[in-house]
C-alpha cells in the first residue's frame, strides 16, 4: 500500500513539473502576443541587425549590398547607423507586422511609398557624399517595380495560430 502511494506521488510530481513548465511557457507566449511584444521586438531591430550574424560578423547580405552600391567600409557603416534609414526600416517592419500578423490590408506599403521612404531617408542622412546618395537612389529605382511584393512575401509565422 505504501509502495503504491509512493509511486502515485512520484507520478504526480513528474506530472506537476511538466504542467508547471508547459503552463509557464504558454503564459509567456500569450503575454508576448497580447502585450504587443511583436511590435516591441520589431522596434528594437536596426539596419545593422539585418546585416550581421549573431556573432557580430557581417553576413552575405552586407557584402552583396556593399558590392552593389560600391561602398567603402566607412560609407557602409554610416548607412547602417543612419537614423532616418533606421526609422524607415521601423516603418516598413511595423507595416509587415500589421499586414501579416494583424491582417490589416491597408497597412501594406506600395512600391512608390517604399521607394519614397528610401529616397527621403537617404537624402536626410548626414555625413555621406552626394555620389553615394545618388547611387542608392538609382539602385532603388531599379527594384522599384517589385520591392513591395518582395517585402510582403516574407514568411511571418503567427504563434497564436499554432497554439
Amino acid at each position: 500500500m505504501k509502495k503504491t502511494k509512493t509511486i502515485v506521488v512520484i507520478i504526480l510530481s513528474i506530472l506537476l513539473v511538466g504542467l508547471y513548465t508547459v503552463t509557464s511557457t504558454y503564459s509567456v507566449i500569450i503575454d508576448v502576443i497580447e502585450n504587443d511584444g511583436i511590435t516591441e521586438i520589431v522596434n528594437e531591430i536596426t539596419v545593422r541587425d539585418l546585416l550581421i550574424n549573431d556573432d557580430g560578423s557581417y553576413n552575405n547580405t552586407y557584402y552583396t549590398v556593399k558590392e552593389e552600391l560600391e561602398l567603402t567600409d566607412e560609407e557602409a557603416n554610416i548607412l547602417m547607423s543612419s537614423v532616418p534609414l533606421n526609422e524607415a526600416l521601423k516603418t516598413v517592419l511595423d507595416s509587415i507586422v500589421e499586414y501579416k500578423v494583424h491582417d490589416n490590408t491597408e497597412a501594406k506599403l506600395t512600391n512608390d511609398e517604399i521607394y519614397n521612404l528610401i529616397t527621403e531617408s537617404i537624402l536626410n542622412t548626414d555625413n555621406i557624399s552626394d555620389e553615394v546618395k545618388s547611387r542608392v537612389i538609382n539602385k532603388s529605382s531599379i527594384y522599384r517595380q517589385d520591392i513591395s511584393d518582395y517585402i510582403y512575401d516574407i514568411e511571418v509565422s503567427v504563434l497564436e495560430d499554432k497554439i
Binding site: S24, V28, V32, G37, E40, D49, N53, D54, N59, N60
Partner: peptide
C-alpha cells in the same frame, strides 16, 4: 534558434524572449 538562423542577427528577439522566461522562472 541562434545556431539555425545565421542570415540576420536575431539576438534581440531571442534575448527579449529569454528575459521573459527568466522573469517567469524567477517568480516560480
Amino acid at each position: 534558434i541562434n545556431s539555425s538562423i545565421n542570415f540576420i542577427n536575431i539576438s534581440i528577439i531571442t534575448d527579449y524572449l529569454f528575459m521573459k522566461f527568466v522573469y517567469t522562472s524567477l517568480i516560480m
